[in-house]
Design a protein around this nucleic acid. Structure first.
Length: 149
DNA sequence: CCCTGATTCGC
DNA sequence: GCGAATCAGG
């Protein structure tokens, strides 16, 4: 039986959880029987509000950002080489087996029959997996030729 | 596309 | 008072 009434007990839980920093959806799941919209609505009605993601229209800017900060080290971009995954049938993802759930990063020479694809799980909205999406975004690695200082 | 809170408004 | 729908942002 799902009780969706805001009993005093549930309201107390709501206040507690909200103050502890849980998100509305988290609280909704915890309490059960209510949606996150219900939680948010109740929170506002209770007078609690504002905490968590600042989706406020107003952006309280700091007067002057002291940009004199000392940065320890800029972590170098990790080079990640991803090997193609082997499918369940023991083969690689080929042009025949490639589908929307596979990274389309080409591996090998397209003119050869060994040509296949990475086949990993692609990032949403991307034809490539996360690693290859990065590589695609930065076409080639930086060369250490003569670098204009 | 996933998430977040904010607001509106019919109930 | 309630919360789904919608909005606005990350």
């Amino acid at each position: 039986m799902t009780q969706a009434n805001w009993t005093d007990d549930r309201v107390e839980q709501l206040k507690s959880l909200w103050t502890e920093g849980l998100s509305a959806s988290q609280i909704a799941r915890t309490l059960g029987g209510v949606t996150r919209n219900a939680v948010i609505g109740k929170v506002h009605r209770l007078g609690l509000a504002g905490r968590a993601s600042p989706s406020r229209v107003e952006r309280p800017r700091l007067p002057t950002t002291p940009r004199v900060s000392i940065r320890p080290h800029v972590p170098p971009a990790p080079i990640i080489e991803e090997d193609p995954v082997t499918l369940d049938d023991g083969n690689f993802a080929t042009v025949l087996t490639i589908n929307d759930r596979m990274c389309r990063w080409p591996i090998g020479d397209p003119s050869e029959n060994e040509f296949h694809f990475c086949g990993r799980k692609p990032k949403s909205g991307s034809p490539y997996c996360e690693a290859h999406a990065r590589k695609a975004y930065q076409p080639q690695q930086q060369r250490r030729d003569k670098l204009a200082s």
